[in-house]
Design a binder for these strands. Structure first.
Lengths: 208, 208
DNA sequence: AAAGGTATTGGACCAAGGTCCAATTTACAA
DNA sequence: TTGTAAATTGGACCTTGGTCCAATACCTTT
């Protein structure tokens, strides 16, 4: 399954030529006439394969910039390449601040768009990989009981079992049991692994 | 010592009004008439306090965009707020891609500039802190002997001493000695600490 | 009331890590 | 050539972590 490029532009002729160009370059495309139409397509916002969005900034109804903000807010992983006929600097700056991959004023060279799309897809692949990894780690954390989670956070500080035991006012033996369960449930083969898992999803130790 | 704002603009009247505005807001300022002049000021590129740069895009000689690229290439920590009289979209996009904090077309409201400068200084403080931390860790790594460094990279995989010993074709005893020295020199109180130090400066384990 | 998940603890035991002592060999620089 | 740093190893010893067994107490849900 080839990478999917979503296109949102209110101008039918632009949609048509973009689709022609991108398909000729080997991409699968899906075009929408408005931000509203695109938002109505739920699967589009959670693609299985790396995907990106070629988006017109100025459109009737929800603008491209607003669509971007909505998608960012919703946590949708979909790098955006903006194209604009009547954009201005503040618009482009805003788009870039919100994480756009590029912002191309019309007219642009075909190669410019293709390069930007290529970059967007690379970014999408990276983000998707990270997201999947994090989701898996969070899934494991959710299987921990409250107490196990507590011990987890103490263990990654590097404290000794006996110290953690004193901190939680239980015996060292209890910590050992919880600790073993944490390692099992988190599928960590070593403390080093456990620390890295915690770092990846930003689990803070109870200290500081 | 108040935060320093460097100003680079070829227009004397712009320099003057920027300095007046920023000084009235409590900042220390230092203005330059060209990118070349700024580059000639070595201490400006390695400020002790958080600092930032208010930079005109279009200037005779080295342009603002080029100056930015030079600074990025040189690893200078100096967030940039661009101001431009005759900028265009590709310019602003390029600037933002290179990490600019903002890109303000003239005329801009004073509050816009002040807000951008504030943001730039916050960013500078964060970057400086991170850089100092990393430098300290790298300094410690440099005190490791080649063999100790080797053992370091194996230790953070979570492998047992005996396994590392087999890998390096030495006895477990030897690994213990190296390992102890690594912990000492890296000032790590636990494996958890050591792993975090390694992560921060991106030390890869010998595996994959 | 019974069942299941959670939290706790104990004993026994072994493996692993860490530390104190000391020693040998090698390689490179003064 | 001599000194110094690096790499290596040994012994003895203690602490810590991990694991197998098992048991008790509490709470919530069925």
């Amino acid at each position: 399954m080839p990478p999917a490029i979503f296109i949102v532009d209110d101008d039918p002729s632009v949609r048509k030529s973009l689709e022609r160009l991108l398909r000729a370059s080997g991409y699968k495309t899906q075009a929408f006439a408005s931000a509203e139409d695109f938002l109505a397509c739920r699967p589009c916002q959670n693609p299985k394969e790396p995907a990106c969005l070629v988006l017109d900034v100025r459109m009737p109804g929800i603008s491209g910039i607003n669509l971007q903000q909505e998608l960012v807010k919703a946590g949708v992983i979909l790098p955006i390449v903006f194209i604009s006929g009547h954009g201005n600097i503040p618009m482009s700056v805003q788009a870039m601040k919100n994480g756009a991959v590029d912002f191309l004023p019309k007219p642009f060279a075909e190669e410019e768009l293709l390069a930007a799309v290529e970059q967007a897809l690379t970014k999408a692949a990276r983000l998707q990989k990270e997201t999947v990894e994090k989701a898996e780690i969070r899934r494991r954390v959710k299987t921990l009981t409250p107490r196990e989670y507590e011990v987890f956070r103490w263990v990654i500080t590097g404290m000794l079992n006996k110290e953690i035991a004193a901190e939680l006012k239980v015996t060292e033996k209890t910590i050992k049991v919880h600790r073993a369960r944490v390692m099992q449930k988190m599928k960590a083969a070593s403390i080093a692994d456990l620390v890295r898992l915690a770092e990846k999803i930003g689990i803070r130790s109870p200290l500081r």
